[in-house]
């Protein structure tokens, strides 16, 4: 067995970045001054200076504080989406593992149909039906994201099912429920943590994109995609209004993606099965 790798400088940087972004998401709204959300037209489009580190936007609001306050709608909504569809994926994979073969086949064909349904299109449908909002984008992404997780997990639970300790538990007569919850799932879900982190990275991009095209979060929300959408008319004159939220999206997506890689390296080990991300 390989010894646990030391905490390298690179890994530490990623952990610190993720911790900072999470702190911004949780506390950003509480710490941000009132002016983050109210307009002050007299101070619009100030370039970055000592008082406004990242300048001000079209409404005279401080861009840095808006980016910090935007961590909550951008990141927490992505984490919520991935958490919801991961749970759906676990339930579907678990069912597929315990039910008779024909029902398993049926579930997997259903999953394939789900795979063919792009979340972005469904989100646009939801936006036109329920009105564009972050909530409708979150719901649409949550109910379309699970098939890949379900398929990945089912292939892993199937491998776990033939492990001698699972067979031994069957010989001992444990119930199917106990077999899954105590023996199969605890030994199959490592990969989920890794995949969760990578998926958060992708979902931030998608939710930001949806807000950018106007079917996600709406202004005056400080959601990063909405901020970029708001700023795109002024890019040539006030580049910082678009660059700051853009950099925030990129930094967050890269941080969570790297976190996924680090988790895979540390938890997955050489023998771990299944890819971390799709």
């Amino acid at each position: 067995m390989m010894a646990r790798p030391h905490l390298s400088l690179g890994d530490a940087t990623v952990f610190v970045l993720v911790a900072l972004i999470l702190a911004a998401a949780v506390f950003g709204n509480l710490l941000a001054p009132e002016a983050t959300f109210s307009s002050d037209i007299g101070n619009a489009f100030l370039p970055p200076d000592a008082q406004h580190w990242l300048g001000t936007d079209s409404q005279g609001r401080d861009v840095l504080w808006r980016v910090i306050a935007g961590a909550a709608p951008s990141l927490l909504s992505s984490m919520l989406v991935v958490t919801i569809y991961s749970l759906i994926g676990v339930v579907v994979a678990t069912l597929a593992t315990v039910v008779p073969r024909w029902l398993d086949e049926g579930l997997m064909r259903g999953t394939e149909i789900g795979l063919a349904l792009p979340g972005v299109i469904v989100a646009m449908g939801f936006a036109s039906a329920m009105g564009p909002s972050l909530a409708s984008a979150v719901i649409a992404m949550s109910i379309t994201g699970w098939p890949i997780t379900a398929r990945l997990l089912r292939s892993i639970t199937r491998q776990t099912m033939v492990a001698p300790y699972v067979q031994g538990a069957q010989v001992m007569g444990v119930s199917r429920f106990r077999l899954m919850t105590r023996h199969v799932l605890p030994n199959s879900l490592d990969v989920l943590i890794i995949k969760w982190s990578g998926d958060v990275s992708i979902t931030i991009l998608v939710l930001g994109g949806l807000s950018f095209v106007g079917v996600g979060a709406q202004p005056p929300s400080a959601e990063w995609g909405a901020m970029i959408s708001d700023a795109r008319s002024y890019v040539s004159t006030a580049w910082w209004t678009a660059a700051a939220p853009g950099a925030a999206i990129a930094l967050t997506a890269v941080s969570f993606s790297l976190l996924g890689d680090i988790l895979q390296r540390r938890l997955g080990g050489a023998g771990a099965s299944g890819g971390a991300r799709s």
Binding site: A163, P164, Y165, V166, Q167, G168, A169, V171, M172, G173, R182, H183, P186, N187
Partner: peptide, 18 residues
């Protein structure tokens, strides 16, 4: 299920690590 039990070959694979 109670009266017939098994001991497997590989004790590294036959005990649930969790």
């Amino acid at each position: 299920r109670r009266e017939v039990q098994i001991v497997f070959q590989d004790p590294f694979a036959s005990l649930n690590p969790r």
